[in-house]
Design a protein around this nucleic acid. Structure first.
Lengths: 146, 146
DNA sequence: TGAATATATTTGCTATGGCAACTATTGCTA
DNA sequence: TAGCAATAGTTGCCATAGCAAATATATTCA
C-alpha cells in the first residue's frame, strides 16, 4: 500500500484514541457523581503536584493555550475547586491553588484515574511503554518548529 | 517512578501530538492560501476515496459524531466543496459528494498532505509503524465497551 | 526618566466535539 | 394496517481549542 517510511497514516489512530480516553474519564467521573471534564482533571492533576503555578505555567505544562487555561480556571473557580491568589512581585500574574474542596475532590478521584490508566495499558508491557513514548515523542518532535 | 505496567501516563503524549499535527496541517493550508481546517480535510479525504457516503457513514469512518459531521458538511457545502444529494430509497439520508471544486481542491492539497505525513514519520522506521499501530490500537481496544 | 517592548491574562470569534432532544422517515410487528 | 421502535439528520447547549486583539503591568534601553 505504502512504500518505505513514506506517508504513514497515524493521525486517525491518535485522534480516535484521544477521544475514547476523554470519553472514559468523563464516564468515570459521571459514575462517581462528579461534574468534571477530562481537561479540568488535567489541570487539577498538575496543581495537586505543583501548587501556586501561574496560568502561563499551567498552559505550558498542560499543552493548552492561555485563553483555554483562563477559561478552565474560571470554571474550576466557579465550582470552588481552585482559587486565584495574587503573585507577590508581579501584579499581572495569578498563583493558582486547589482549594480544600479541590484537594478533597482530587483525592477522591485519584484512585479511579489510576485504574483508568491501568485499564489503558492492559495487554501491554513495560517495554511497550518505552517504545510508545519513543515513537510518539519522535512524531511530536518532527512537527516542532526548529 | 512507576512499577510494572501500572498507571502509565500516555494521555499527555497523545494529546500534545494530536494538537501539533492539527496545527501543522492548518499552517500548511494557510500557507497554500486555502481556508480549510484539519477536520474538514479529514472529511474531504474520506469522500475523495468513497463518494456518496451518508453522513452516518462519514461519522463512523472519521470517528466523529453525527452532529459534528452535520456541521462540517454544512461548512463544506457553503464553500461549495461538497454537496448533498438525495438517497434513492431512503428520504432520511443524504449522499455526500465532493463537487468539481472540491475534487480540484483535494488534488491541489493532497501532495502537501503526503509531505506532512512523511514529515511526521521522519527518523522512524517501517517496523516502528507496526509497533505504533499495535500499541495505540491496544490502548484504544482497552477502552472500548465490551 | 520615558518610550518602546515584552509578558500575563482576558475577551471575542469561530470550529470541533459530546450529549440530549427534536423532526422526519423507515421498518417491524401485533 | 396501526402503532411503536429504530435510524438519519438537525439543533441547542456547553466545553475545549486556536487565533487575534485588548488590557494591565513589567522590563529594557536610549
Amino acid at each position: 500500500m505504502q512504500k518505505e517510511s513514506n506517508a504513514k497514516k497515524f493521525g486517525a489512530y491518535i485522534d480516535r484514541t484521544m477521544k475514547i480516553i476523554r470519553h472514559n474519564y468523563l464516564q468515570k467521573f459521571k459514575e462517581l457523581g462528579v461534574d468534571l471534564t477530562t481537561e479540568q482533571w488535567v489541570i487539577m492533576d498538575i496543581l495537586y503536584g505543583q501548587a501556586g503555578l501561574s496560568q502561563q505555567d499551567l498552559a505550558t505544562t498542560s499543552f493548552k493555550n492561555a485563553p483555554t487555561v483562563s477559561r478552565i480556571i474560571d470554571l474550576l473557580c466557579k465550582k470552588k475547586i481552585t482559587e486565584r491568589k495574587p503573585f507577590a512581585n508581579d501584579r499581572r500574574k495569578h498563583k493558582i491553588f486547589l482549594t480544600e474542596t479541590g484537594i478533597a475532590l482530587y483525592q477522591k478521584l485519584q484512585p479511579s484515574v489510576v485504574e483508568l490508566r491501568k485499564q489503558g495499558w492492559q495487554n501491554l508491557e513495560e517495554k511497550d511503554y518505552t517504545e510508545f513514548v519513543r515513537i510518539i515523542g519522535q512524531i511530536y518532535a518532527n512537527y516542532e518548529e526548529q
